Amino acid sequence: MTGRNQSTISEFLLLGLPIPSEHQNLFYALFLAMYLTTILGNILIIIVICLDSHLHTPMYLFLSNLSFSDLCFSSVTIPKLLQNMQSKVPSIPYAGCLTQMYFFLFFGDLESFLLVAMAYDRYVAICFPLHYTTIMSPKLCLFLVVLCWVLTTFHALLHTLLMARLSFCVDNVIPHFFCDMSALLKLACSNTHVNELVIFIMGGLVVVIPFLLIIVSYARIFSSILKVPSSQGIHKALSTCGSHISVVSLFYGAIIGLYLCPSANNSTVKETIMALMYTVVTPMLNPFIYSLRNRDMKRALCRKKIPLYF
């Protein structure tokens, strides 16, 4: 409430996507279809995992949480984007903007941490197959899931509270389709050094470190396979880890392209496209990836007599 009292504006204007007016309806239909596909696909994954006892394993516990994170992650931005595409004044209230920023950070961080937990699960399954059930006990799996949720709650809340203390004076136009934290900092008319310092420090903890842990896990996996090279071992690794590697590549590829690659003159367009990649495209593709590349999921869909449309 303190941040709101300091602010002299009550809402922000979202510029949205750089789409010509004559193409608005076409892109509206496209994003609506993608959003519905994301929701239905991820809900289907969760339902199948819950109903099929064969999938009550650590890997699918993490996958069900990842699917829930994906559908929520898309729901944070896409419904508002669709609403604003049909609105003459694409605005969002001050409190709504901070709320959107909080849940955007929350579910984005949650996906990052869950991908680390899934990488560790694959590492144990391939490098220590005889001790897998002992190491990946239900207690440890539950602890890893709870830890992911707790860490993301702390991180998202920290940035939201720091943003709420800032003042926003005159300019309230956000050149994005959602309340991006960096875009909001550029509009603030009070000192943002603390915010920027926390972003730099915490960014390493929630993005760089998880990514490095995933790289280390797969380095150990492939090192273990190469010690006893065989076509069967390589095939097992690919079939076991292929889906996860694909999802990691999509998720972190978009983040690396956005934050680590040099910005061109049209940096705003680039940021928008990259943001669409990891907020819209990646959550939509995850159910496809885990259905098409995962034998256990295919069998579960067949057991439940669900047509494999994706």
Rank of each mutant, 00 (worst) to 15 (best):
F12P: 05
L14E: 10
G16I: 11
L17F: 14
L17A: 13
L17D: 08
I19C: 08
H23K: 15
H23W: 14
Q24K: 13
N25L: 06
F27C: 08
F27D: 03
Y28D: 00
A29W: 02
F31V: 13
L32T: 15
A33M: 12
M34H: 03
T37N: 08
L40Q: 02
G41F: 03
G41D: 03
I45S: 03
I46A: 13
I47D: 10
I47A: 09
I47T: 11
V48F: 01
L51G: 05
L51H: 10
D52F: 09
D52G: 03
D52I: 01
S53P: 00
L55V: 05
H56D: 01
T57F: 06
Y60K: 04
F62Y: 15
F62L: 11
L63E: 13
S64V: 09
S64Q: 08
N65I: 00
N65C: 15
N65H: 11
N65R: 09
N65G: 10
L66E: 12
S69C: 15
S69R: 11
D70I: 09
C72H: 05
F73T: 07
S74W: 01
S74A: 15
S75G: 02
S75D: 00
V76I: 13
V76R: 00
T77I: 12
K80N: 08
K80S: 09
L82W: 04
Q83N: 09
Q83E: 08
N84W: 10
N84K: 09
S87M: 12
K88F: 02
I92Y: 02
Y94P: 02
C97E: 07
C97L: 07
L98Q: 04
T99E: 00
T99H: 07
M101E: 08
Y102S: 05
Y102V: 02
F103G: 01
F103I: 06
F104K: 09
F104W: 08
L105T: 01
F106I: 09
G108E: 05
D109K: 04
S112A: 12
L114D: 04
L114Q: 08
L115D: 10
L115Y: 07
A117D: 15
M118C: 10
A119L: 01
A119Q: 01
A119M: 03
A119H: 01
Y123I: 06
Y123C: 05
A125I: 15
C127G: 02
C127H: 00
P129N: 03
P129Q: 09
P129H: 06
L130W: 00
L130Q: 14
H131W: 06
Y132L: 10
T134R: 13
T134F: 09
T134E: 11
I135H: 02
S137H: 03
S137A: 07
P138D: 05
K139I: 13
L140Q: 10
C141G: 11
L142F: 11
F143E: 11
